[in-house]
Nucleic acid binder design. Sequence first.
DNA 1: TCACTAAAGGTACTGCAGTTCCGTTAAGAC
DNA 2: GTCTTAACGGAACTGCAGTACCTTTAGTGA
Lengths: 203, 203
Amino acid sequence: MAVGVIRPGGRTARVRAAVLQAAGDALVEHGFDRLDLADVARRAEVGKTTVYRRWGTTARLVADLLTDMAEQSLPRADTGSLIGDLRANARLVQRTLVDSRQGALFRAVIVAATCDPRTAEALHRFYAVRIAEWVPCVEQAVRRGELPSGTDAAEVVRAVSAPLYYRLLVSGDPIDRATADRAAEAAAAAAHAGVYTPTSSPN
Amino acid sequence: MAVGVIRPGGRTARVRAAVLQAAGDALVEHGFDRLDLADVARRAEVGKTTVYRRWGTTARLVADLLTDMAEQSLPRADTGSLIGDLRANARLVQRTLVDSRQGALFRAVIVAATCDPRTAEALHRFYAVRIAEWVPCVEQAVRRGELPSGTDAAEVVRAVSAPLYYRLLVSGDPIDRATADRAAEAAAAAAHAGVYTPTSSPN
DNA sequence: TCACTAAAGGTACTGCAGTTCCGTTAAGAC
DNA sequence: GTCTTAACGGAACTGCAGTACCTTTAGTGA
């Protein structure tokens, strides 16, 4: 066998899957600050040396978890109207952040990103993928004439999520369905008013 | 002297001030994850035992730092128009988050809040104070007839900050002045459309 | 099926964050 | 001033996260 050949098949992949699963569980239970690689190894029934060798730090393990999460993207909605699509997106984000497992996981992952540049990059890629998935909703609305042409679609999608993440991380206010709907309506209203077109600057 | 008397004067206050200053410096330099109480003690020229005894953990030290920060609130603007006031607020937040010291400090403090419930409470109080400071801008706009009566003023103020914090913590997109202005305009447009009135649900 | 070696596993070690213990300093009541 | 004790300080200790080193397992080309 040739020297330096990478072996992704079988065991290696199995170990990665087990460790990422265990890492997710540990993050949900203790949060990122109490994440211990030896504990992850125990849960994954894998040698702790392996975890330290392949990932090195908790932040880089989370970065790998994120690239894994980015691959399982959820499909966007297509309700036929902008507000319907944005509301569907807002409610999806709301449900995710409120869910005890997913919410804890997202919080942990965002914290991890502030500790390591590579993890931050993985997080930004993850959200770039998620946002790109919903961009067509806004582009369709522009084509239907619901929104001014030149509207920055990605910015509209970001505007829907922003108030929900703000509550999760900053203000601590509850994230209920009404909040989600308001976030969708606010983004739609601002887009209608032409706030997200590059040229205009109303008032 | 009576038993159990608290001694806040002189030394105790001096130690607290020195430690909080040192904690801020350390947070800006290393971030919350690499915050070491022994290092803080060294910077503050204070015994490390003292820091461990009075604060115990890094998260609780940050909580104390936050209550200290909440006391030095910045005055709100009064430009005479809603969009003027909101833009002033957005630009203030933008400058704060972009500033290398303040930005790092806010990031660290938000991370710390995810690690300890008491720190989270301190963070939420801090933002409650900051938001309350700007609420009158929106209330004045309602009185001037710029916005529908019944508008949730605090929600409008939160809506201005949300996109900026979303970029800081989640998407990683740059936070420039144009972003700040757009955040202010979006909040104003949504408020105009009646999104932040409890009864209505446009569309 | 065999030979080669990438990758995993086990165990003993080390450094340092966090604790304990006890002596010292100074705030504040009288 | 003087006495009490809250609060600080130094130094030795401990437990565990992270490392080093060597052995074992199993993926893959021939």
